[in-house]
Structures are given as structure tokens and as C-alpha cells.
């Protein structure tokens, strides 16, 4: 459990970080909280010669709720998400989800940026960002670029981000209505067996918008457009919820692991999705 040798860089602004990244190309990787990357290096599954620690870069930190938009700097820790009163008020789903990530020790250092950039299907933030319709702000040698969270994930650990790009921040419109992040895991510190993020708005007893996304049930997060669409225009009664659950389950493709076989995961996913939808509706 000891990583191979590497050089450690600690730039204090984004352009310096980009310069190192450009210089070393494939051999370099940025380091955020390190709670996904360092274990891989210790297992020698990732051999990285140049590690660029982003923690001194102030411009990558912070949470702002400005008008209708929430922006979260990539280097904001998961603990800071939980601790921020403005955020808890504007988008309570973030706090609910972050509290279900890992354990307090991991959350003190694990970052939002690392969590969404990583591309691990087990990470909880990517599904959540897809549910919220977030935009990822990247910067590279050629300048800045925005990617929709729903377009960012290609396969496990494969994302739309180029090797020489850094994620600066994520932003999304202040969510409305009811919300829920429901997660089943084996224990504290475990990734999801199945997890689901839901935002629903209701007006006059009828659903006006719904967004449903899932974690660790495919090799990428899954935002099910159909599942949300099924709810819209209904009273969100049992029939509509059942149809939404069916649509969401139809969109997933889980694989067997120590948590259990596919059949079990699909079944549990159905239960978790249903609970998330019901809780979100109860809060709408």
C-alpha cells in the first residue's frame, strides 16, 4: 500500500497548474482531496509521476448563491456543502446527499470537484448534478468551456474532460419544489448499492416538473428523462409513481459486485427510486 515515486507540485493559481499539466501531459494528474486518487496510487493501479495539488488555489474554492444560480468551486469540500447555511436553504438536496457520502473524515477532505470529475460510477455527486441540470466549467490551455453534467460522463472513469483540462466549478439553477436523495449502502463509508436523486415541483395538485437521476446503477450516472416526463402532468398518485419507477429502472444497467447480483440490484433500485420519488413529492 505504498505508491510509486512521484513529483509533488503545489501551484497557487490555475494558470500555473495548467502549465504543469501541459508540460507533463499524460504523466501528470491534478490532486484534490485525494480520497479517490491516492488509494488508486497506493494500490499501484494508477502510476502518476507528477501530482499537482490544487489546494492552494483560492479561485477554486467557495460556494455562492447568486440570484437564481448556485456556483460551487471545485475545491469545495463535501463537509463545506453540509456546513453552508445558504446552500442548505437554497438547495437542501445537496446537504442530504453529502451527508450520505462516505464518513466525516472523508468528507473533510473529499471535494465536489474530485467527486464529479473522477468518473467513478459510485460517486454520489455526478447523479445529483445530473438531477439538478448542472453545468461543469472547465479550463484548459485553449480557454474555458462549459459541459452539461448530463453530457459529461461517457463510461466508468471516462469523461468529456480532456487530460489537460481542470474543472473550475459547477453551477446550477436554484432548485424548486420537493427533493430527496435516497441511498442504500452496506455500511458507513460504502458506495451505493443503489441511490437516486429527485427534484419535483407541484402546482395545484399536479406535477409541473420532475428530474430523476441514479447512482452506481450503470457505468455512468443515469438521468432518466422518461422517468421525469412520466410524472409531469399527473397528480403523482401511485399509478404515476409506479410508471416513473418502471421508466427509471428500464434505464439502468447494473453489474454484479460484492453488494450483490444484478437481479437484486435492479429490485433494490426500484425500491430506492420509489422512496426517493415519494419523499420528494411529500416535500413538494
Amino acid at each position: 500500500m505504498i505508491p510509486a515515486r512521484f513529483e509533488y507540485h503545489r501551484p497557487s493559481d490555475v494558470s500555473a497548474a495548467l502549465a504543469i499539466l501541459t508540460e507533463h501531459g499524460d504523466d501528470a494528474r491534478v490532486l484534490a482531496g485525494g480520497h479517490s486518487l491516492i488509494p488508486m496510487m497506493k494500490l499501484r493501479m494508477a502510476a502518476i509521476e507528477h501530482l499537482i495539488d490544487l489546494q492552494d488555489i483560492a479561485e477554486l474554492k467557495g460556494i455562492s448563491v447568486d440570484g437564481g444560480t448556485i456556483t460551487i468551486g471545485a475545491m469545495t469540500t463535501q463537509h463545506e456543502l453540509i456546513d453552508n447555511a445558504d446552500l442548505a436553504k437554497a438547495a437542501p438536496i445537496l446537504r442530504e446527499a453529502a451527508l450520505q457520502i462516505a464518513d466525516p473524515q472523508v468528507r473533510y477532505v473529499g471535494t465536489v470537484g474530485g467527486n464529479v470529475a473522477n468518473g467513478d460510477p459510485g460517486n454520489d455527486m455526478p447523479g445529483l448534478m445530473q438531477c439538478l441540470g448542472a453545468t461543469f466549467h472547465l479550463v484548459g490551455p485553449g480557454g474555458t468551456r462549459d459541459v452539461a453534467a448530463r453530457d459529461y460522463y461517457e463510461a466508468a472513469y471516462m469523461t468529456d474532460r480532456e487530460d489537460d483540462e481542470i474543472l473550475v466549478s459547477v453551477s446550477f439553477p436554484v432548485p424548486e419544489g420537493g427533493y430527496a436523495y435516497e441511498k442504500q449502502k452496506r455500511k458507513i463509508g460504502d458506495y451505493a448499492t443503489a441511490a437516486c436523486a429527485v427534484q419535483v415541483t407541484m402546482a395545484g395538485g399536479s406535477c409541473t416538473a420532475a428530474s430523476i437521476a441514479m447512482t452506481n446503477l450503470s457505468d455512468t450516472p443515469i438521468w432518466s428523462k422518461d422517468a421525469g416526463a412520466v410524472l409531469v402532468g399527473t397528480d403523482c398518485g401511485p399509478g404515476a409513481i409506479g410508471a416513473a419507477v418502471d421508466a427509471a429502472v428500464a434505464a439502468i444497467d447494473p453489474t454484479e459486485d460484492n453488494r450483490g447480483p444484478v437481479e437484486f440490484k435492479k429490485h433494490v433500485a426500484g425500491v430506492v427510486i420509489r422512496r426517493a420519488i415519494e419523499r420528494a413529492i411529500s416535500r413538494a
Partner: peptide, 15 residues
Amino acid sequence: DHWRIWKTAHDLGLH
């Protein structure tokens, strides 16, 4: 664990 208990329930026809 979760999946073995689930399987017990499943095999007993409780789903």
C-alpha cells in the same frame, strides 16, 4: 448481508 436477506425473502416468494 442485504443481498442474502433479500434472496431469502425472494426465494420464499415474498416479493
